[in-house]
Write a protein that binds this DNA or RNA. Sequence first.
DNA 1: ATGCCTAACACCGTTAGA
Length: 264
Amino acid sequence: MRIATWNVNSVNARLERVLEWFESASPDVAVLQEIKCVDEKFPVEGFERLGYNVAVHGQKTYNGVAMLSKYPMEDVRRGLPFRNEDDDEVDEQSRYIEAVIGAPTPFRVAGIYLPNGNPVDTEKFTYKLAWMRRLQAHAQRLLALEEPLVIAGDYNVIPEPEDVANPEAWVNDALFRPESRGAFRALKNLGFTDAYMQADGAPHGYTFWDYQAGAWPRNLGIRIDHLLLSPQAADKLQGVVIHRDERDKEKPSDHVPVVVELSL
DNA sequence: ATGCCTAACACCGTTAGA
């Protein structure tokens, strides 16, 4: 079972590139971030033509997440709950989608677009940290189900100095601040496995390179797109591939796809 | 040096990303 995450930086601006990738990489399930469109503008037909079911949690202009699956999706959840699972308070930012994948061995996938949080002296950083607390609370409830579970997406957290080319330049950035790294560690320490670290673990496994200042040719990247596995999923981990080649294509996203293989 | 790209929206610049 191949499960992918990709921040596409506008699904419509990049549709041809994204569909090409889906055709060649052929993930069974994929979560997309920063689709940057409302549900009605999501290019459903292109994905359906490739055999995918589509679930979208869109938003005008900013954010927006989607899940594509070759298997039926059940119990689709759009938006991260605030206090408990029945809370009907809604996030005005579309950053979370979750579904049970009706494969022969069913499993659960969540797709997240965690807030960036910059600049750190603003309410944006507060919102990021609050969102991470909400994610941790929800993840804890999901772990209690003792299912194979993958929480995949753009975490906007650089976990360790080995995950960035020049750590000094990031010390006061929301992606690398101790509060963000601590919250990511706390989430992981609930019992998740970072798929990349487990299956590969080579330092500098970047997934994002800024469009500016020649970050890509100079390989000044960061590793911020992660797949966290519940114990029941981690037991099935076969491998992880970062699709770096995508960054070198014409009109690329600034993120590249990350794919895990699970023996589900 | 807080811009250097890129995208969306709506206006011909602003906001946001990371």
